[in-house]
Amino acid sequence: MSLVNGLPAHILLVHFVVVLVPLTALALVACAIWPRAARRMGVVLPVLALVTLVSVPLTTQAGEWLEGHVAGNALVHRHAELGDGLLPWAGGLFLLSAAVWWATGRTAGSGSGASGTTRRSGVPVRVAAAVLSLAVAAGAVVDVYRIGDSGAKAAWQDGFAKTASGGGDDH
């Protein structure tokens, strides 16, 4: 994928990643911490994470095409390097989302008739899932920020004047 309506596809696809990664991270953490939220979201959680996972390589492939069609510099190269590191984070979001969804579905069947011992034995697993989800979610969001920051610097470096040119209305 190279161009969409005359614009580089990367410029359009990146908006999906910038929205979907933090949204998926937030949903994962909420579902890992609150099983009730996971039950309410149901299969939407892993489907959202799958869409996020698929959007990352589409965006990076479009970015590689764009990198080949712009004047290369250190900022563009750094942005491309950082972008290549997002896929493992997105994969982690997907795997954990699928695991939280699966585990919530398995425990939902036990209902209120489950013994206190069964519920207590699941607490360490839930705590571990919540901690791991928090770590992966934070890593993914921080990585998206770093990639976006480097992309903005690469795109806008020397691309604007620090003072108004006087041609527009700045009131």
Rank of each mutant, 00 (worst) to 15 (best):
M1H: 00
S2K: 11
S2F: 06
L3H: 07
G6C: 06
G6P: 04
L7Q: 15
P8V: 02
H10C: 12
I11D: 11
I11K: 10
L12S: 10
L13A: 09
L13E: 06
L13I: 03
V14S: 06
F16S: 12
V17W: 05
V18D: 02
V19L: 14
V21C: 03
L23M: 08
L26M: 02
A27R: 07
I33Y: 10
R40H: 12
R40N: 04
G42P: 07
V43N: 13
L48W: 04
L50S: 12
V51W: 04
L53I: 04
L58G: 04
L58E: 04
T59N: 09
A62R: 06
W65L: 03
W65A: 03
L66A: 14
A71I: 09
A71G: 13
A74S: 15
A74I: 14
L75I: 01
H79A: 12
H79F: 08
A80W: 09
E81S: 14
E81I: 14
L82I: 13
G83W: 03
L86W: 05
L86N: 05
L87Q: 12
L87M: 14
W89C: 06
A90N: 09
G91L: 11
G91Q: 08
F94P: 08
S97H: 10
A99E: 07
V100R: 09
W101P: 03
W102N: 05
W102Y: 14
R106E: 10
R106C: 00
A108R: 13
A108Q: 11
A108F: 08
G109S: 13
G111K: 14
G111L: 15
S112A: 15
G113M: 09
G113S: 11
A114G: 12
S115I: 08
T118Y: 12
S121C: 09
V123L: 13
V123G: 00
P124H: 04
V125G: 11
V125S: 10
R126I: 01
R126C: 00
A129I: 00
A130S: 12
V131A: 11
L132C: 08
L132A: 14
L134I: 02
L134C: 14
A135F: 08
G139K: 07
A140I: 00
D143I: 00
D143N: 12
D143L: 11
Y145N: 05
Y145G: 06
R146C: 01
R146L: 14
D149E: 12
A152T: 01
A152K: 05
A152I: 00
K153P: 00
Q157M: 02
Q157E: 11
F160N: 05
K162W: 06
S165Y: 03
G166T: 05
D170F: 15
D170W: 15
